[in-house]
């Protein structure tokens, strides 16, 4: 347990993660790779409202990082800012050492979404394929490149275990099935980093565990760093290398052992939260604020 837990979320906190070798991050069993994401003193303003200010965050290669925080604090906006989809009002973002938007082809992005429309008559494999060459202009010409793309899509579908239903219209698949295919889509261009926005949202409990395990397994096998936005930390808790807590005033980062404690979480969320230990040594977070009913709608209205 950290001796200096972040006391408040309303003030900017100096960066503590990544390669800065901060005293808060004494992870002994992992060597920090090159920095993939570097957010420095960033401020986001949407529609005249300051979403967050003075945020510092970093993600190194190979890390499995969760972004936590109360609803409406702008976790999705942070991912969009990293991708250059939302401009910053102040501060800087570097993605793979380049300005935002210039290295997106090396990043797999899974936006927060409601599921596909049930009447959408496009197959799962087509959606995966779009992640591979959907941004290419002109007609797909049959040939070597097209066959290679087809083979790659088959490989991706098998990687996420979706071979049984990938040829069905995506609108008819369950939330968990759709999520697996979307993870395959995000992996299509062999990214170095996955940015996943609430990938476990709207899944039932067994599917949450299964998809979380799948993400962790793929991250290791494909050597991809993962940044995952979550409002419920329990399904991913065992896989986490580091946690970035986003509050209105800034970001706090640390190892799960530092941040996932009763004292720290209670302070950060401003509501009583208990961290329990199960018999097999896993942590369970109890009393964490649940998403309000209008959660998806709120995100849907964000540009």
């Amino acid at each position: 347990m950290s001796s200096t837990p972040p006391r408040t979320a309303t003030h900017a906190v100096p960066p503590t993660g990544g390669n800065s070798a901060a005293p808060h991050d004494p992870d002994p069993d992992r060597e920090a790779g090159p920095v993939l994401v570097e957010v420095a003193q960033a401020t986001a303003v949407l529609g005249g409202r300051t979403i967050w200010a003075g945020v510092d965050a970093a993600v190194a290669a190979g890390e499995f990082v969760a972004i936590l925080g109360p609803n409406g604090v702008g976790k999705s906006t942070l991912l969009k800012a990293i991708l250059g989809l939302t401009p910053l009002a102040a501060g800087t973002v570097r993605l793979l050492g380049r300005p935002p938007g210039q290295a997106n082809h090396q990043v797999g992005y899974l936006p927060q979404r409601r599921s596909f429309d049930a009447s959408l008559r496009v197959r799962g494999v087509d959606v995966v394929r779009l992640g591979l060459d959907g941004d290419r202009w002109g007609l797909p010409i049959p040939g070597r490149r097209s066959r290679a793309a087809t083979a790659r899509v088959r490989e991706l579908v098998e990687l996420v275990g979706a071979a049984g239903y990938a040829h069905r219209p995506i609108g008819q698949l369950s939330g968990g099935e759709q999520q697996r295919l979307l993870i395959a889509q995000a992996l299509a261009r062999a990214p170095r980093l996955l940015l996943l926005d609430e990938p476990l949202d709207s899944l039932d409990l067994p599917n949450q565990a299964a998809v979380a395990a799948l993400i962790s397994r793929i991250a290791r096998a494909e050597e991809v760093a993962v940044v995952i936005v979550a409002h419920d930390v329990n399904p991913i808790l065992t896989y986490l290398d580091r946690v970035i807590y986003l509050g209105p005033g800034g970001a706090v980062s640390g190892t799960p052992a530092q941040v996932i404690t009763s004292a720290t979480l209670t302070t950060l969320y401003g509501t009583p939260i208990e961290v329990l230990s199960t018999s097999d040594g896993r942590l369970v977070v109890v009393g964490q604020p649940e998403a309000p009913a209008l959660h998806t709608d709120r995100h849907g209205t964000r540009p």
Binding site: L85, N104, H105, Y109, P111, R113, F116, V122, L130, D135
Partner: peptide, 9 residues
């Protein structure tokens, strides 16, 4: 069918 991801691409 996938506006957000298309923008990210």
């Amino acid at each position: 069918i996938d506006t957000d991801v298309a923008r990210a691409h």
